[in-house]
Amino acid sequence: MLQPQIVNNTGRQMNIEVQEATDGRGQRQARYIFSDLVGDGLTTPGGRGRRAMRDFYNVNPAGISR
């Protein structure tokens, strides 16, 4: 299986998980999961990830109920 070269230009440590699956034709497919980066993007105040969740999916972070 051909392994892609992943270049990290973020200056941060990344944890990459690789999952192999077989499609309907029996071909192996690799899935690369960058969950740390997605998590950081969703929790950054004013970040693009948080804005996308709000604008496209109408999901807002829960505030502190006082």
Rank of each mutant, 00 (worst) to 15 (best):
Y57C: 07
I16A: 04
R50Q: 15
V18A: 04
R31S: 09
E20L: 08
M14H: 11
R51L: 11
G39R: 15
R66S: 05
F34P: 00
N15M: 02
T10G: 10
S35R: 14
V38A: 09
G47E: 05
G11W: 05
M14G: 00
R12N: 10
P45F: 07
D36W: 01
A30S: 14
V38S: 01
R31D: 01
G46L: 08
E17C: 04
N9S: 04
Y32V: 08
R66N: 05
G46M: 07
Q19H: 13
Q5D: 03
L42N: 03
G47N: 10
P45R: 02
A52D: 08
G46D: 07
M1R: 07
R31M: 14
F56D: 12
A52L: 12
G63I: 05
Y57S: 06
L2P: 15
T44E: 01
R25C: 03
M53R: 06
G63A: 06
E20T: 14
G39A: 13
A62E: 05
R12H: 09
N15F: 10
Y57E: 04
V59R: 07
R48Y: 09
T44A: 02
D36N: 14
S65L: 07
P61K: 06
P45G: 03
G49Y: 01
T43D: 01
Q27L: 12
M53G: 04
Q27K: 12
F34V: 11
N15H: 10
G11Y: 03
D55N: 13
V7D: 03
G39D: 12
F34R: 02
R48A: 10
S35P: 00
G24N: 11
R12F: 08
V7Y: 05
P45H: 00
I16F: 05
R25F: 14
R51D: 13
T44V: 11
M53D: 02
T10Q: 01
A62L: 11
N15Y: 07
Q13Y: 12
V7R: 08
Y57W: 08
G46W: 09
N8G: 06
A21V: 15
R66I: 00
G49E: 00
I64A: 01
V59D: 04
F56M: 12
V38R: 11
N15C: 05
S65Q: 10
T10Y: 07
F34A: 04
V38L: 14
M53C: 10
S65P: 03
Q5F: 05
R51M: 07
P45N: 02
R31I: 15
M53F: 11
Q3R: 13
G11I: 05
A30K: 15
I33G: 01
N58Q: 09
V7M: 06
I64F: 03
T22V: 15
Q13A: 14
Q13T: 15
L37C: 08
R12M: 11
G47Y: 03
A62Q: 11
L2I: 09
M1K: 06
S65M: 01
V18P: 00
Q5I: 14
P61W: 04
G63L: 05
D55P: 00
S35M: 06
G46T: 07
I33D: 11
Q13E: 12
I64S: 03
A52M: 13
V59T: 09
A52G: 01
E17V: 15
Q5K: 13
L42Q: 04
N58V: 02
A21T: 13
I33P: 00
L2W: 03
R28T: 09
